[in-house]
Design a protein around this nucleic acid. Structure first.
Length: 251
DNA sequence: ATGTCGCCTACGAGGCGA
């Protein structure tokens, strides 16, 4: 979201117009005592969040009660000996959801890149363990994966030569979620379209975007999916986030 | 035109991260 405080009005408007039951937010960029609870609560949403400082920060806004909240996942790697606010899990009406902000990676030779790969590997490992114990659990990993799995998920693959988000290592880390039984539940319904456009270089007017935000569902969750959308219009107007909402409908 | 944005510290502007 690139700051919930800056965009609270837009977020509430979206929640109300869409009728969203559960919103998974990433990059709220605030600590708990800085979160704008009141407008969410006035709109009928409960907040479940994990924020440590001005960086990262993940949260849920939900009409449904959040149960079994987990801050970070078991085995989540640290960066520079600090556990960052990049993962929060909770169960809503029996559906286990994770709001995830995967490390960016920065550049291929940066320690952040190996952190990103390790973070994804550990996430896949613990999720695999969860599903081995509960094969019928409706579960989704959702958020900013900072990976474009297909060349067509970026506007010009040549532009990304030597950059993060499109490397074989990152794509392999993404595909590992498929190997443990998760599927992208949006792609079959919405095969094309970006979820992110950089603020710089007039990327949005030029439609130079990236598809890097995903909802990866277990088999039991995928069976419930009745619809999906990518809310491109949310990138328009005054004060948008650089990402747009990805919506999944369950029955 | 590095065609941007938001946070921080600290009071103006630079640093950081994306």
């Amino acid at each position: 979201m690139n700051s919930v405080r800056t965009r609270v009005g837009r977020v509430i408007s979206f929640l109300e117009s869409s009728g969203t039951d559960v919103l998974a937010m990433q990059e709220i960029k605030c600590k708990p005592d800085q979160f704008p609870y009141k407008p969410f609560e006035d709109a009928g949403y409960q907040i479940t969040l994990h924020g440590l400082n001005q960086w990262n920060g993940v949260a849920f806004a939900s009409k449904i009660e959040a149960q079994d909240v987990e801050i970070g996942f078991t085995g989540m790697p640290e960066f520079k000996e600090v556990q960052e606010a990049r993962a929060i899990g909770a169960t809503f009406n029996g559906v286990r959801l994770w709001s995830l902000y995967v490390p960016n990676g920065r550049s291929l030779d940066d320690p952040h890149f190996s952190y990103k790969l390790e973070w994804l590997e550990r996430l896949a490992a613990i999720t695999s363990e969860t599903l081995e114990n509960e094969p019928d659990l409706p579960l989704a990993l959702m958020g900013d994966f900072n990976i474009a799995p297909l060349d067509s998920d970026v506007w010009d693959i040549n532009f990304f030569a030597g950059s993060t988000h499109v490397t074989p290592q990152e794509r392999q880390a993404f595909e590992a979620f498929g190997q443990i039984g998760l599927t992208d539940v949006v792609r079959p319904l919405i095969p094309e379209g970006y979820t992110y456009w950089d603020y710089q270089q007039l990327r949005f007017p030029r439609n130079e975007g990236m598809r890097i935000d995903f909802v990866l569902g277990s088999e039991a969750l995928a069976e419930k999916v009745s619809g999906a959308s990518i809310e491109r219009d949310e990138r328009k107007g005054e004060g948008p986030s650089d990402h747009v909402p990805v919506v999944v409908e369950l029955n």
